[in-house]
Simulated scan of single mutants.
Amino acid sequence: MREVRKAVIPAAGLGTRFLPATKAMPKEMLPLIDRPVIQYVVEEAIDSGIDDLIIITGRGKRAIEDYFDDSPELEMHLRDHGKHETLKTVRDVSSLVDIHYIRQKEPRGLGDAILRAEKHIGDEPFAVLLGDDIIRNHIPCTKQLIEIYGQTGRSVVAVEAVPREKVSSYGIIRGTPASPSLYRIDDIIEKPRIEDAPSNIGAIGRYVFSPEIFECLGRTSPGVGGEIQLTDAMRILLQSQEIYAHAFQGHRYDTGDKAGYIKVIIDFALENPETCDEVAEHLSSLERLKPEDLRAEKSISQGTVEPFQKY
């Protein structure tokens, strides 16, 4: 059984939940303090043993390629101004891992985006990491899946229990427990209505697939939203081999959701030495207020200008 050394990061989505900002910039480049979302995903792949990375891009995503490329003019400016620590940070980004870029010419869904990588992947198993999800743990989520693939020789997807009101936003599994954190998937349904959902266990943005998934993707017809759905291809794969679902260890942030994006910024700011004290103080000042009080206060408050004082 071959090692999992390659990974695909689909980053061709339109980012409609963050319009109008994503009209001019990829959603994967939205900043978390001083790094874009996609860098955390790339670093998870590297920390999981991946050394060959394919990013699926689309029209208007050139900023992703530029970010991971060398920047001679910027580097020269930083060197000339003695900003050596910042220079090292910039250079480290461009030397993280070998990255290849493939363009999805039109937004035809996650399944189609992954299918674009078939020629590069060949007959090897590979990981898929969605750029919307940041998952933090001392053992990367992707590495957890790779270990399970090594034990079973079968495709595996990360899952977690999702809130009832969000079931219709996920691929929901029906599974048979194989161990305390592992299920054999019996079926998976893309974005079901709550009354049709077989469980509240949803697939999130981490997968390890055997190469047979490509043949299944090629046979998949457009599904929900008129797109090639990865879950539909997984249902085809289930006809010939087992797929496992792993209740991963770690904390997941959905940065493709506005509230989730704000939460991860707050958590990361509280860990950052440059921002933690001021952010903690600000949050402490808000603890006494209820959400409705905050909205009311912000809507009626007016700023005042204090007289200038010399210190």
Rank of each mutant, 00 (worst) to 15 (best):
I50R: 02
I266Q: 08
I228T: 14
L110V: 06
I262S: 14
T220M: 04
I236W: 08
A113Y: 07
D112Y: 06
L289W: 14
L217T: 06
I146M: 03
K105A: 01
N272W: 05
R206W: 06
I50Q: 02
L19F: 11
V279Y: 04
S71D: 15
A203G: 01
S199K: 03
F248K: 00
G303N: 10
M29R: 08
K83V: 00
K105G: 12
S94R: 12
F18P: 00
Q144F: 02
G150Y: 02
T22K: 04
A11K: 06
P177H: 04
I114F: 12
G175R: 03
A280K: 14
S71Q: 12
K310D: 14
A161S: 06
M76F: 02
R35Q: 13
L283P: 07
L115N: 15
E212H: 13
D196P: 03
K191V: 04
P107C: 07
K143V: 00
R219M: 14
S48P: 04
I189V: 15
A269W: 06
V93C: 10
R59E: 15
K27A: 14
P107F: 12
D92K: 13
E124R: 12
Y244F: 15
E65C: 05
T220V: 06
K23G: 06
V167E: 02
G153W: 05
E212P: 02
K290D: 08
N200K: 01
F214G: 08
G122P: 06
D132F: 03
S284T: 09
Q309R: 11
Y101S: 10
I148F: 00
G256P: 03
K310V: 13
K83D: 13
E271D: 15
T220D: 07
